[in-house]
Design a protein around this nucleic acid. Structure first.
Length: 103
DNA sequence: CTATTGACGACAT
DNA sequence: CATGTCGCCAATA
């Protein structure tokens, strides 16, 4: 059973368009918890994963991949498959493909 | 209730 | 740009 916080996070996560990524901080902001970037990451870790929620579209605020339950390498592949290029563990043109819920 | 942990972030050096 | 420290939040032991 998921907590409200997790549910909220996952819900927002589903809004991210293909070919775009968001950050833990940004996502935290989206759930009205600007300081809980860490907690957000924790939530994604427990998340049902795959078909339900594209948790691989969430990266660190620096444009780096951050982590992934199935392995950072897998995350890179998934992103690449959606058109998001990654170079040395870092998102290419990060600022250009980052998705802000505030928009 | 307290302590520990973790897919983080900001800042200082 | 690289490394180290501190702060933050939610879940779990």
């Amino acid at each position: 059973m998921l907590t409200e916080f997790e549910t909220e996070v996952l819900k927002m996560l589903r809004q991210i368009p293909v070919g775009r990524v968001t950050t833990y901080k940004n996502l935290a902001c989206a759930v009205k918890r600007p300081q809980s970037a860490r907690a957000v990451g924790n939530a994604l870790n427990k998340n049902p994963d795959i078909p339900k929620v594209p948790c691989h579209r969430v990266v660190a605020s620096d444009g780096y991949l951050g982590g992934y339950a199935c392995g950072a390498r897998k995350k890179t592949e998934l992103l690449k498959d959606e058109g998001v290029l990654v170079k040395n563990g870092r998102i290419v043109d990060f600022k250009n493909i980052i998705y802000n819920f505030a928009d």
